[in-house]
Design a protein around this nucleic acid. Structure first.
Lengths: 231, 231
DNA sequence: CAAAAATGCGAGCTTTTACTCACATCCACC
DNA sequence: GGTGGATGTGAGTAAAAGCTCGCATTTTTG
């Protein structure tokens, strides 16, 4: 490896042909990465599989890390789009149905390309992409907090930020593990139903908030809502 | 890199001196791995930091992957030992205290060396260590199932295997994320208490088993949880 | 103490890596 | 149809990687 240098930002593809090249490179990266891991995903191997020359690869990606980061960014964007759409759809649904829909959405996200998702989760931090992951989690938590706000009267008293953190992390981990290690659980509905049950119980156990002025549910007395804002 | 060859198993250290060598190598691996990641943890770098020659390293580890797998195995063993001890201690405690103790134990596990733990989680699959991770999770789930059995009368009707899976995955992910991304949450007790609350609610909501009158309404009517032997 | 076994060493080999560069080809537009 | 920017090429480079092997040193054993 040559010493770290100043990698100037590369060209942006302007013509259709070059956009196809970039797509092929990203697809090849995904393919090798998800089947053989980061160390085997060499720039030469990626270029070969993409059917382009190594020079073309370096025309659009300044180095290997940028290549993987780009892939991760695209993947993250897809997930966020899907989640936003689902959250929109369930704006008015009752809590249990809403939670179930979100759990199903997460399963959907993970089932799309489980191996790629897994390896990106593993590899992204090593490649300077922790910030991107944080952004994704923060955005998901924000959607949840907004949802909580809108439905405060149906929930028990919660620290929205903390609860959003718990749910985002739990559901992501559960879905991730279920898809990768227990796909059988997903055939039937048990996984989704049981996860939904856990969450709904956590959110509502203790009874709905006795009706308050439509402002919002007060978090625990004197407790600031810690982990939520960080966009 | 030479082509993949038949890596015969290497020597086992018999003398005290060589045991110290192996320890130094593992310590150096942990150090570099947790601070610089897998790609920087080259065998030459590890040997240099351990203060031994590259030849000595290859006397005990047939290749780089085996080196990291060995580190992971040691780490896994430590976690399992700690968990077993805790489960023993709480055999007789009331459910809420027991759950809280286990959550605290998980925090303890992660706080011991968060960076090493994180990177091992990330890197282990790429190095042929998925089986080891599966073993750890299975063992943890087994302990939980045993706990459930012993306390069945205090729990609502559960599919033990499925519930153990949900809890193992959730608590691991939550603790992992909390330690790495929100250490502030751990200063106060909010994280432990809220996580405990979620779990206890999930395990007991609906009332204890023998008392067949559900005190609280279930989220969905008549959803039977079919037992399944999930190890 | 001598022979044998275990342990340690590190120069150096081969292969692979990330990445560059001089040049060829394509395409939009006039 | 020709010109100039966009795009594509791939042999080649220096660095670094994984790993071997012949030999030196230490420890155990008889």
């Amino acid at each position: 490896m040559p010493p770290r240098a100043l990698h100037q930002p590369r060209k942006v593809p302007r013509q259709k042909r070059s956009q196809e090249t970039v797509d092929a490179i990203l697809a090849a990266t995904a393919h090798i990465l998800s089947r053989q891991g980061l160390e085997k995903a060499t720039t030469n191997a990626v270029a070969r599989r993409a059917g382009v020359s190594i020079g073309s690869l370096y025309q659009y990606f300044p180095d290997k890390e940028a290549l993987i980061r780009a892939l991760n960014e695209r993947h993250t964007r897809e997930i966020l789009d899907l989640l936003r759409a689902r959250f929109d759809e369930i704006r008015a649904a009752p809590i249990p149905e809403a939670v179930e829909a979100i759990v199903r959405a997460m399963v959907e996200v993970h089932r799309h390309d489980p191996d790629l998702h897994r390896v990106l989760v593993q590899v992204t931090p090593a490649v300077g992409g922790r910030e991107e992951t944080r952004r994704l989690e923060a955005a998901a938590a924000e959607m949840l907090v907004a949802f909580f706000h809108a439905r405060a009267s149906e929930l028990r008293s919660l620290d929205f930020g903390l609860s959003a953190f718990l749910l985002v992390q739990s559901v992501e981990a559960l879905t991730h593990a279920a898809v990768l290690e227990h796909p059988d659980l997903l055939k039937e509905d048990r996984f989704v139903l049981e996860t939904t049950r856990m969450i709904v119980g956590y959110l509502t156990e203790g009874g709905p908030q006795p009706d308050r002025s439509p402002g919002r549910a007060a978090p625990r007395p004197g407790r600031p809502t810690a982990p939520s804002g960080g966009t």
